[in-house]
Design a protein around this nucleic acid. Structure first.
Length: 113
DNA sequence: TGCCTGACTTACA
DNA sequence: CTGTAAGCCAGGC
């Protein structure tokens, strides 16, 4: 039926949205200790290329008790754009990832590439 | 419904 | 290196 198809489409879109979130979280969880990844690459690895901003949105709404290594995510230039850059920089330093002026060396610490 | 904003990115001046 | 512009997505008002 038509109404059923319509309902089914919405259902699929919602499920896809949920799957995308799970995919992003999964990728971030795989970033190894002492390494960092960019929002864009995370989106690509999560099979949703071009959705870097979506990744940032998820991290911004991440629960505080989350076990995800959110501090290992930086922008394409290796810069920390997290509003709470202090906490992120501190966490990275704890992993021996130098980040002066909220910037890390992707050349040295980028995961893959 | 439309417009603005934000933990983005790439391209170009 | 700084500023603009365009593209992308979700939320808030």
């Amino acid at each position: 039926m038509l109404s059923d198809k319509n309902h089914s489409d919405k259902h699929d879109l919602m499920n896809q949205s949920i799957e995308n979130r799970k995919a992003v979280w999964s990728v971030i969880a795989q970033i190894p200790y002492g390494k960092v990844a960019t929002y864009g690459q995370i989106a690509t690895l999560a099979e949703i290329p071009g959705h870097a901003r979506f990744v940032g949105h998820l991290l911004a709404n991440l629960p505080e008790d989350s076990s995800l290594p959110w501090h290992r995510v930086v922008n394409s230039g290796g810069r920390i754009t997290n509003p709470n850059s202090l906490a992120q920089a501190a966490r990275l330093e704890d992993e021996n990832v130098s980040c002066r002026d909220n910037r890390v060396s992707l050349k040295m610490h980028h995961w893959k590439l």
